[in-house]
C-alpha cells in the first residue's frame, strides 16, 4: 500500500467513524434492551432474524441513497425518487404477464432513467434549481403512477418477479446482492473512471472545473440519470417484495431517508467530496433505527418523534463545531 493510499484511507476512516459509531450504538442498544434481536436461525436453508430483516429492508433505501450521493456531490438534490420508485414499480407490475419478465424489468429501468433524464435536462440545461426541478416530478410522478395502475393497487403472482425482493440466494436475501452490486458498480465508476474526480471538482467549484475542460452539464445529466435508475431499481425491490404496485404509498418519504443516509454518511449538502461507503452505513443505520423503534413497541404516533431525536443527536455528533463546543466545555469543567 502506498503512502498516499494509506492517507486517503485515513481520511475515509475519520469521515466514516461517525456513522459507524451511530450504527454500533444502535446495535448495542438492541443487545441490551431488545431481547432476541441478534437471534438468527436457519429455516429451509435461509437465514432469518432481525438483522437479516434490516438488511433486506434497507436495500431500497441503500440503492436510492447511493444515487442520491452522486446528486448531492454535485451540490444538487433529487426529491422525486419516491415518485420514480412508484412509477417504476407500476410499470413493471402492469407489464408482467403482458410481455416477458425481463422486458417488464427492462422497461421499468428505462422509465427510471428517462425520469432522471427529465430531471437532468431541467436542472443542467434549463438552469432550474434542483429542489424545484425535482419537485415537479415528485408531484406529478405519483399521478403518472396512478395513470399506469389506473388508480388501483396492482398485484402479481409471478414467483420469479417476487424473487427480486423476497428471494434468497446463498442463504441471504437476494435484495442485498442487488444493493451490493449497485454499490460496487458506482464505486467502480468513482475509483476507476474520472467520474469521481470530475464530480467532486464540479461540486466544489463549477467555474474552475469548466475552465479546466470538465463539462459540468454532462456530469449533472449523468448523475441525475443514475439517480433515476437507482430509484427504479428500488421500485423493483419494493414492488417485488409486496408483489404489488401501490402508486400512492410505495416509497412514500423515502427521499427523506435517502438524503438523511447521505448526510449521516459524511457527504456535505454543499457538494464536493462524497462517501459511498458512508452512505451505505447511513442507510443501514436508518433502517436499524426504524426496526428498533418498532420492536421496542413505541406507539406509532410517537415513532417519528423518536426518530427525529436520534437523527438530531447523530447530526450533532457529526458537526465539527458542536464537537469543539463540547470538548471546550469538558476542558473547562476539568480546569474548574
Amino acid at each position: 500500500m502506498s503512502n498516499t493510499r494509506r492517507r486517503a484511507a485515513n481520511i475515509m476512516h475519520t469521515k466514516i467513524i461517525w456513522p459507524l459509531t451511530a450504527l454500533a450504538a444502535i446495535l448495542l442498544f438492541n443487545l441490551f434492551f431488545v431481547p432476541g434481536f441478534f437471534h438468527m436461525e436457519i429455516k429451509d436453508g435461509h437465514l432469518f432474524g432481525s438483522l437479516i430483516d434490516i438488511l433486506n429492508r434497507a436495500a431500497p433505501i441503500m440503492v436510492i441513497a447511493i444515487g442520491m450521493t452522486l446528486v448531492i456531490a454535485k451540490e444538487g438534490i433529487d426529491i422525486s425518487v419516491g415518485s420514480v420508485l412508484a412509477i417504476a414499480g407500476a410499470v413493471a407490475i402492469s407489464l408482467i404477464g403482458v410481455v416477458p419478465l425481463w422486458m417488464a424489468i427492462g422497461a421499468a429501468l428505462i422509465v427510471g432513467a428517462l425520469c432522471g433524464l427529465w430531471n437532468g435536462v431541467l436542472i443542467a440545461y434549463l438552469g432550474i434549481q434542483p429542489m424545484v426541478g425535482t419537485l415537479i416530478l415528485m408531484t406529478v410522478g405519483r399521478g403518472i403512477a396512478q395513470l399506469i395502475t389506473e388508480g388501483k393497487v396492482l398485484t402479481t403472482d409471478s414467483k420469479s418477479y417476487g424473487f427480486i425482493g423476497k428471494g434468497f440466494f446463498l442463504g441471504l436475501p437476494f435484495s442485498i446482492f442487488i444493493a451490493a452490486f449497485v454499490f460496487l458498480l458506482v464505486l467502480y465508476l468513482k475509483k476507476r473512471t474520472a467520474l469521481g474526480l470530475f464530480l467532486e471538482a464540479t461540486g466544489t467549484n463549477k467555474v474552475s472545473s469548466e475552465y479546466a475542460g470538465v463539462e459540468p452539464r454532462k456530469i449533472y445529466l449523468f448523475v441525475y440519470i443514475v439517480c433515476g435508475l437507482c430509484a427504479a431499481i428500488a421500485g423493483l425491490l419494493v414492488s417485488s417484495n409486496i408483489s404489488s404496485a401501490d402508486a400512492n404509498n410505495a416509497g412514500l418519504w423515502i427521499e427523506l431517508d435517502a438524503i438523511l443516509a447521505v448526510v449521516i454518511g459524511g457527504t456535505s449538502m454543499r457538494g464536493g467530496r462524497f462517501f459511498l461507503a458512508g452512505t451505505v452505513i447511513g442507510a443501514l443505520f436508518i433502517q436499524s433505527l426504524t426496526t428498533t423503534i418498532y420492536s421496542m413497541g413505541v406507539p406509532p404516533e410517537r415513532i417519528m418523534v423518536v426518530k427525529a431525536i436520534v437523527v438530531i443527536i447523530v447530526s450533532l455528533m457529526q458537526s465539527d463545531r458542536f464537537r469543539q463546543m463540547f470538548q471546550q466545555k469538558s476542558k473547562k469543567a476539568v480546569i474548574g
Binding site: T4, E200, A201, S209, G213, V214
Partner: peptide
C-alpha cells in the same frame, strides 16, 4: 482557477 476542496494532485491532473 483552484478547486478548493481537492488535493494538489487532483488539481494538477484535472
Amino acid at each position: 482557477g483552484i478547486v478548493g476542496e481537492l488535493t494538489i494532485r487532483e488539481n494538477i491532473v484535472l
